[in-house]
Design a protein around this nucleic acid. Structure first.
Length: 321
DNA sequence: GGGACTCGATACTGGGTTTC
DNA sequence: GAAACCCAGTATCGAGTCCC
């Protein structure tokens, strides 16, 4: 055994350290299974097991402990995981750096996760690409909560645009847009003149965006937590459906002001600030260390940031009221 | 409780590469 | 060119879990 006597990290240097072990470690952190990590790296399970045992010897730590069917990382594994992922991302970017990203001639598909903000940013992004980056394709993916981090880790998405405030510290993030709460309704169907009073708002029937199980959705839940009990009749999975329902029914649709001010006029709907004191979380962009160093993703981030800045500078219909 | 199944670890082997 | 070494493969075992 060539490494006989090499029992701790004190006894090796980078010259003797197989950097593939870092890839193995990273795969274990992401898959939490020797078999799955092996499949991910396209090697057999014993080879992966051997990699793990080598890592255990070199780092003088169990690194992963089997608990049930899951290989749980130890405190030491957790402590070094972010640094290892960062090193691998940087190495990848160095290797890819010679292919300097040129959007005008690049052929690439980006996978972008959205919780529900694609209507705000995607149309402008696609319009820009049609002119300046015709070889770029965008695949929008629906993501929620913890799925964002998982999808970023596994490379299922290149970056994500989210509207919830909790972003794990290991990911980079940037605030794109502040938003307030708006309500829209068809003035021909709902007996409200001008901006609805709080009494009128609370007395109305409502349609909300409900992306998951609860008919109230995130916004409806915020409103209830603020002490307002609304008669929510319909929960729909997208803004366009809510707008269409509000257009043909005597109902109020409540949604972020940026969506409302952009799309309500197409349905002949009146737009006003929602008369409930709710602070909506801002819209943020989240990406991993890979997105930090990948020139292509850097370009995409810059495009999205620029579009968001344009939306902000256009002025806020509701803020002006 | 016991059998079936899953999954990780270990022993051994063979192919490819490196070193002398 | 032969020996040493490295790496990943197969075969097998044991521990844990699931399900009847």
């Amino acid at each position: 055994m060539g490494m006989a006597g090499m029992t701790s990290i004190d006894h090796f240097n980078l010259r003797s350290f197989d950097l593939n072990l870092m890839i193995a470690f990273d795969a274990m952190m992401k898959e939490r299974s020797v078999t799955k990590a092996a499949a991910k790296l396209r090697i057999q399970q014993p080879a992966m097991s051997h990699n793990l045992s080598t890592l255990r010897m070199l780092l003088d730590d169990e690194l992963f402990i089997r608990i049930g069917n899951v290989m749980q990382p130890t405190a030491k594994a957790e402590a070094i995981a972010v640094s290892v992922a960062d090193i691998l991302d940087r190495a990848q970017s160095v290797i890819q750096a010679k292919d300097c990203f040129n959007p005008a001639c690049a052929e690439r598909e980006f996978k972008v996760g959205f919780t529900c903000e694609e209507l705000l940013l995607l149309p402008d992004l696609v319009a820009r690409m049609a002119v300046s980056a015709p070889g770029i394709r965008i695949r929008a993916v629906r993501v929620f909560g913890d799925d964002v981090g998982r999808a970023l880790d596994q490379g299922d998405i290149d970056l994500s645009v989210v509207c919830f405030p909790l972003v794990p510290a290991r990911y980079r993030h940037q605030k794109l847009l502040n938003q307030t709460l708006a309500c829209v309704y068809n003035p021909d169907l709902l007996a409200v003149s001008g901006a609805p009073s709080r009494t009128e708002y609370l007395a109305a029937r409502h349609v909300f965006i409900a992306l998951q199980d609860d008919i109230r959705g995130c916004v409806g839940t915020l409103i209830r937590e603020a002490g307002f009990d609304l008669d929510i009749v319909v929960g729909v999975p997208d803004y366009m459906a809510a707008l269409e329902i509000a257009a043909v029914s005597p109902m109020i649709a409540t949604m972020p002001d940026l969506i409302a001010s952009r799309y309500a006029s197409r349905f002949g709907l009146a737009v006003h600030p929602a008369p409930v004191p709710i602070d909506l979380p801002s819209v943020s962009m989240v990406w991993s260390a890979r997105g930090e160093s990948d020139p292509a993703i850097q370009w995409l981030r810059a495009e999205i940031t620029d579009i968001a800045a344009g939306i902000t500078s256009e002025g806020r219909l509701l803020a002006a009221e």
